[in-house]
């Protein structure tokens, strides 16, 4: 399977570079990256789902807001997620569904706390081989 994301170094924080063949896959992979960093994504079952609708002033802003929303489901609602489906999107809106389950401390291992998704140097770009995004997480 094609690589969904890579982590790069940033002194006190964690940078993530995300790849996708199109914008929808890029956003889906971004959500995957966030959860893959925080938990062991392979042992999360799709027991429950949530609809996501997010707006932004452009693709970068949309990416940050989308990840902020996804992160809240973890931090606020205690959900661990692993399946991210983007149904509709343009540069200012995104709609989709995420699936996962309530965090079970006995079964789910939590690797790292992500405090926030930052606006710092957020980037979304189309290249010759598809889309790339960069986001820095405050950890």
């Amino acid at each position: 399977m094609k690589q969904k994301y890579a982590v790069f170094d940033h002194t006190a924080d964690l940078g993530v570079e995300i790849y996708g063949k199109d914008e929808k896959e890029l956003f889906s992979n971004a959500a995957h990256a966030l959860f893959d960093i925080m938990t062991d994504i392979n042992i999360v079952y799709p027991k429950t789902e949530r609809d996501i609708r997010v707006e932004g002033s452009g693709l970068e802003d949309l990416m940050v807001n989308f990840l902020r929303e996804i992160l809240y489901l973890f931090n606020g609602e205690g959900l661990s997620l692993h399946n991210f489906l983007v149904s509709e999107m343009d540069s200012y809106h995104i709609k989709g569904t995420v699936r996962g389950e309530k965090i079970d401390p006995d079964r789910h291992c939590l690797n790292m706390e992500v405090k926030a998704v930052t606006y710092h140097r957020a980037e979304v770009k189309k290249g010759s081989h598809g889309w790339t995004a960069r986001v820095i997480f405050d950890v």
Binding site: N65, A116, Y119
Partner: peptide
Amino acid sequence: RGLGYQVCDDFLARMVK
């Protein structure tokens, strides 16, 4: 804890707008 992170996150988003 999470309350403080959320306050910062909420207001950053508002102010960035």
